[in-house]
């Protein structure tokens, strides 16, 4: 290859774990990775929504600096490492943190088998939760006829907030409170979901990675062994995720 050709590639590509990955201006490292089906673990990111960068599972080393891939712009020549033992160990710890700060009793959870937090645990080989359990006491909101909010399992990923605000255009949710007291709140005078205009068909009602927002009366509708993560890894399902595109709506 000529020097010029080399430069041309450099100008719009990065490497991820040694693999050359092209990108378009404005794309994040995550965008570039997903476009070529490289999986960088993530929970609070969902293509099509503005990235938030709160879960920190997508931490990578970019030119030696730890950055969140979902909110860091790809830059020509950037050398990114992601699938390293060290980063995966950190991701495992972060996943364990998410487990212990909430109340996750998978055997009694409707989301089990279809839960992305659980699937992250599987992907990272999590055998136990390692840290001391926080056992928080959080409110359940069963005031809505079709959508249930069980805050025990909320991982504060902000996906429902963004989905409701930016896609559904209803702005039903927000995160309130500081530090460990952070919690999901509902944008109504009563603070109850029943007084909101959320509907089961809304993206916000469906996007929750865990069993915190559930569509009622749909529990356990797929048998064990046929649920999403009985058959697939989160690294596979992540490749097909995208908020419904405008064209899909029309079609």
């Amino acid at each position: 290859m000529t020097n010029e050709a080399n430069k041309a590639i450099d100008a719009n590509s990065i490497t991820i774990d040694g693999e050359t990955v092209p990108f378009d201006a404005g794309q994040t490292i995550m965008d570039a990775a997903l476009a070529v089906k490289i999986y960088i673990p993530h929970l609070c990111h969902y293509p099509g929504l503005t990235p938030a960068g709160n879960c920190r599972l997508c931490m990578v080393e970019a030119n030696g600096k730890s950055v969140a891939a979902c909110v860091t712009q790809a830059q020509s020549g950037q050398q990114v490492s992601s699938n390293t033992p060290e980063l995966n160990a950190a991701r495992l710890s972060i996943t364990q943190m998410l487990f212990v700060e909430g109340n996750h009793i998978c055997p009694s959870c409707e989301k089990s088998g279809n839960c992305r937090l659980q699937a992250m645990g599987y992907y990272l080989g999590m055998l136990e939760e390692h840290f001391h359990q926080f056992n928080p006491r959080r409110e359940i909101d069963a005031s809505h006829s079709t959508v249930l909010l069980d805050r025990d399992r909320c991982i504060l990923c902000d996906l429902c907030v963004r989905a409701s605000r930016d896609v559904d255009k209803k702005n039903v949710f927000a995160i309130a409170g500081r530090g460990i007291h952070a919690r999901l709140i509902v944008n109504t005078a009563s603070g109850k979901l029943g007084d909101s205009n959320i509907e089961a068909k809304d993206l916000a009602a469906k996007i929750c990675p865990v069993g915190a927002i559930l569509i009622r009366e749909r529990s356990f509708d797929s048998p064990v062994a046929e649920r999403i993560y009985d058959r697939q890894s989160i690294s596979d399902t992540a490749m097909t995720e995208h908020v419904p595109r405008k064209e899909d709506d029309r079609g």
Binding site: L156, G179, I180
Partner: peptide, 21 residues
């Protein structure tokens, strides 16, 4: 730090509490 963490990101929100313990 546990008291003042804003709670946005996991390592700080949870980690500062764990550190206290």
């Amino acid at each position: 730090f546990a008291h003042e963490s804003c709670g946005f990101c996991t390592p700080c929100r949870v980690g500062t509490r764990l550190m206290e313990g």
